[in-house]
């Protein structure tokens, strides 16, 4: 029982840092870069993706014994596409402004490699509860990463955070909101995390040696 519990916990927390979908696995880049122009859009996109990820993980895990191995990819795609359609219609109905901001990228959640990747690597092999935890953990990891990018880009480009002004707009670098800014910000973050990992590795070696 003990091992079972700890593995559930690790299924939940793996997505936070160790296997973070954006910064560690570098998956699902298209929506991450395209919709992180400001914090609000980033949060909306993150939550929409997380919702689809959790639901598709649960369903695929529940159906894993019914789906024949040969047609599993089309079956997964159908499940994911159905949930994306639902999320798309819900967002159209309830959060119209966000829906127009995100535009094309909501339907494109279907082809987000994170969702397909978790279906194939985790949900198709594990029980419903663990798949739910995995979806939640990975989803939160994704929300965290996209929100970090969105907040950074919003602060640097127009000097606001969730619409609250931090400093006058004249100090902003507008390029951060444009496509090149997305590449620059994620590139610098990746370099920062790699640097931290390198330093920790070196310290560990020093302690041992």
């Amino acid at each position: 029982m003990k091992t079972n519990e700890s593995s559930s916990l690790s299924a939940f927390t793996a997505g936070f840092i160790k296997q973070n979908p954006t910064f560690s696995q570098v998956l699902g880049l298209c929506p991450t870069l395209a919709t992180s122009t400001n914090a609000e859009n980033a949060l909306g996109m993150g939550l929409a993706t997380m919702g689809v990820l959790i639901l598709s993980n649960i369903f695929i895990s529940a159906l894993r014994k019914l789906i024949p191995n040969e047609v599993r990819i089309p079956a997964y795609i159908s499940v994911i596409a159905s949930f994306v359609t639902i999320v798309n219609l819900l967002m159209h109905g309830y959060t119209y402004q966000l829906w127009t901001n995100l535009g094309l990228y909501i339907p494109l959640i279907v082809v987000n490699c994170i969702i397909m990747g978790r279906a194939e690597a985790f949900a198709s092999k594990n029980g419903i509860w663990k798949s739910f935890l995995d979806g939640l953990g990975m989803g939160l990891g994704f929300v965290g990463a996209i929100l970090l990018l969105g907040m950074t880009r919003e602060v640097l480009s127009v000097g606001t955070l969730f619409g609250i002004r931090l400093w006058p707009k004249t100090y902003g670098m507008f390029v951060m909101m444009l496509p090149p800014g997305a590449f620059l910000v994620i590139g610098l973050y990746l370099a920062l995390f790699k640097h931290i990992a390198n330093v920790r590795k070196r310290n560990l070696k020093n302690i041992k040696g």
């Binding site: 620059l184 994620i186 590139g187 990746l190 370099a191 920062l192 790699k194 640097h195 390198n198």
Partner: peptide, 11 residues
């Protein structure tokens, strides 16, 4: 060292 691989590609 920090920029090798992915970070450099993004830059």
């Amino acid at each position: 060292a920090a920029f090798e691989g992915m970070p450099a590609a993004f830059i």
